Amino acid sequence: MATLREDIKSQSDWIVKAFAADGFKLDYSIDSIIEVDRFFAVNMKNGVPKKGGRLYGKGFGPILFSIGSYVGETIIKNVKGADWVTDESDPNAEINVLLKLPNDGQIWPIQKVIKRFKNGSEDAIYPYVHLVTKEFTNLPFKEEFWAVTAGTDKSEQTKPWWKIW
């Protein structure tokens, strides 16, 4: 049986190939996280998976895990000293796995992807990843991200405006 770290690595590599089959280019760069948000924009409408899309049906959990694995592996490849912290005894280890940053910060990439799925573009992945990595990478924010979410239907957001505060 594979360890969680091995599963994360293999699922991250798998999602790169799966996304490529649909024309999304993942190359483990921070900027490629924009493609993750584009994937959600293409496959979601009004806060639910589009019929016939890659997230439609009941089997989307492993896809979300794979996407979260890619997000974490991308951070590890771009932030020296970042590493997964796993707990094989946790029955929810696939969801609770965290990534420790060199500044002692901790993030949960798989939980972030689940929030993106549930909440829509208000929980976009690229701005989050850019924010948590910018002190280590000094990369500028890619303005093309806004074009990815510009076409997102505003009704995709699941929280009414009065519940934001």
Rank of each mutant, 00 (worst) to 15 (best):
Y70P: 00
G52Q: 07
V16P: 00
P140W: 01
Q106S: 11
I30D: 04
A150I: 10
G151H: 06
Y126N: 04
K80F: 15
F39D: 05
A124P: 06
V48S: 10
E156T: 15
I114Y: 07
W14E: 13
T149G: 02
R38I: 10
A21D: 12
A18Q: 00
K80G: 15
K77C: 11
F24E: 06
A20D: 10
N43Y: 10
K77D: 06
F117S: 03
S69G: 09
Y70H: 00
V132P: 04
V129C: 12
P160I: 11
G72D: 00
G59I: 00
E143M: 06
I34N: 11
T86K: 04
K17M: 00
G57S: 02
T86L: 08
G53A: 14
T137K: 05
D37K: 12
G72A: 04
L131N: 14
L99D: 10
W165D: 04
K112M: 01
R5K: 14
S32Y: 02
S66W: 01
I164V: 06
Q106P: 00
T3S: 15
E143Y: 09
G59M: 02
G59N: 10
Y28D: 05
T86E: 14
L26Q: 03
S29V: 09
F141R: 04
P49C: 14
N138W: 03
I107V: 13
V42E: 15
Y126D: 12
E135Q: 10
D90W: 05
F19I: 04
K112L: 00
E6L: 05
F19M: 14
Q157M: 10
S29M: 03
P102S: 13
D27V: 01
G23Y: 05
T149L: 11
D7Q: 02
W146A: 04
A20R: 04
F141T: 09
K80A: 15
W108K: 03
I107E: 06
D7F: 00
F136A: 09
D123E: 14
E135P: 04
I95A: 12
Y128Q: 07
V71D: 09
I8D: 01
E144Q: 10
K142N: 09
G105K: 14
V79T: 12
M1Q: 13
A41L: 05
S121Y: 15
G61S: 01
I34M: 01
I8Q: 05
D104L: 00
I76A: 11
T74R: 13
G120E: 08
I110C: 00
E144M: 05
L4T: 08
S12H: 01
K17C: 00
